[in-house]
Design a binder for these strands. Structure first.
Lengths: 221, 221
DNA sequence: AAATAATCGAACCGATCGGTTCGATTTGCT
DNA sequence: AGCAAATCGAACCGATCGGTTCGATTATTT
């Protein structure tokens, strides 16, 4: 108490003298959970495995997370925040319409076909029937929010006279789906075990932009 | 022929004098399995539940199916055969290109957003990491085969001068994905708990056809 | 009616699960 | 150095799982 708020500030930023509050340990646990969930799915991932993978005792595990579902939700939320930043940057920064779409689509596909988004999708879909709230939240805060961002962007370009779109929300969803054609589905089903190559992504996204512009574009063509 | 192979015919079609061979009982079991798998997913569906739902003793269950995975595979295969017929009819029968696409797309969406395809997708995706063969087979004999059928159809129309397509396989995948925009994803995540209405399907498929034709159509526009 | 075989039903098996408990050990603060 | 708290680790709990076994029951065949 040398000053007034010394102890509190230390307890938060530097100490781990509060049970279940050490951010490093928390991170460590989430890393282990990530590995085990990705490899085995939700049901088949045991808390024993996770504790072992994280090099943490099972007791400590339950100090940091109250049960398996909360641990999984925390993992998803952390990863979402980690990957969301910069996803929508392409839409705000790039003046060229087709280039903005291309960059956005490329980033989207890279993210979706990556190992984390893939396993997260599999797990959430696998339990969506039993845990509808988890499925709904995952959808609303992920894919749906992405489509809405894109829709808002398209709206601007419509107002600017660059696009002519009747149903903007549908058009946004169409573009998102066009970008994934051929790439996401076989990956989800594990029929293709490696992420698509740079050239493959460029081709599919390019064709997505072309199709999208053929329908909704006003200037060129 | 009534004379000579009577007994054999009876043994197959009428009798149940061979263990695990009664088609009615097999059907009964699959019905129960369908209900339980759909409601709980693969891992959480217990063989006890399935036996109870099918009004069959657990012992009998294991006479007809050697384990849970085989039971699930048999269920999927039965349902696939049941629903595949007539799916590709629209492509063969209809002379009008846009009408053929519309009919195909409508049937596709109806099937995919229906309760069985939905739960089958969730389950297979949920275990795709642990059971890669199941995921790959499901994909290859379902979605992939559908896309190939459509690609073959598109190829004909390209040869007939009605379409101009560079990458036919990609174009087919694009159309399939366009048809599902807005409809399939929220349903998969259980964010929308009822199948889309007739009008909604018509709108989305109509827009899918419009976008597809804007890019690849030759005649109009 | 007697025989024969499929099915039932209920107990049982070993394994594993999520989650808890608690004494031993480590860690960081004073 | 000495203390207090976080963590460890291993045993433990009740429940449930997939799968098996076996005597009782039911239905079909002769």
């Amino acid at each position: 108490m040398s000053a007034m708020l010394e102890p509190r500030a230390r307890a938060i930023s530097r100490n781990r003298r509060v049970a279940g509050m050490d951010p490093d340990k928390r991170h460590q646990i989430l890393e282990g959970a990530n590995a085990v969930f990705a490899a085995r799915g939700f049901d088949a991932a045991s808390m024993n495995d996770i504790a072992a993978a994280a090099n943490v005792s099972k007791g400590t595990l339950y100090v940091y997370f109250e049960d398996k579902e909360h641990l999984f939700v925390a993992l998803i939320e952390r990863e979402r925040e980690k990957q969301k930043q910069g996803m929508y940057a392409a839409l705000a920064d790039e003046p060229s319409l087709t280039l903005a779409l291309t960059n956005f689509g490329t980033g989207l596909v890279r993210l979706l076909t990556g190992p984390f988004a893939l396993s997260a999708h599999r797990i959430v879909l696998g339990v969506a029937e039993r845990m509808p709230d988890l499925g709904r939240e995952f959808y609303e805060r992920g894919p749906m929010q992405g489509a809405q961002h894109l829709a808002a962007f398209l709206e601007q370009r419509v107002a600017a006279g660059e696009l002519a779109i009747g149903d903007v929300a549908l058009a946004a969803a169409q573009f998102v789906d066009l970008c994934q054609s051929t790439l996401m589905r076989p990956r989800l089903f594990n029929a293709v075990r490696t992420p698509p190559g740079e050239d493959e992504v460029a081709h599919v996204v390019g064709e997505a932009v072309a199709t999208f512009m053929a329908r909704y574009g006003k200037a060129a063509r």
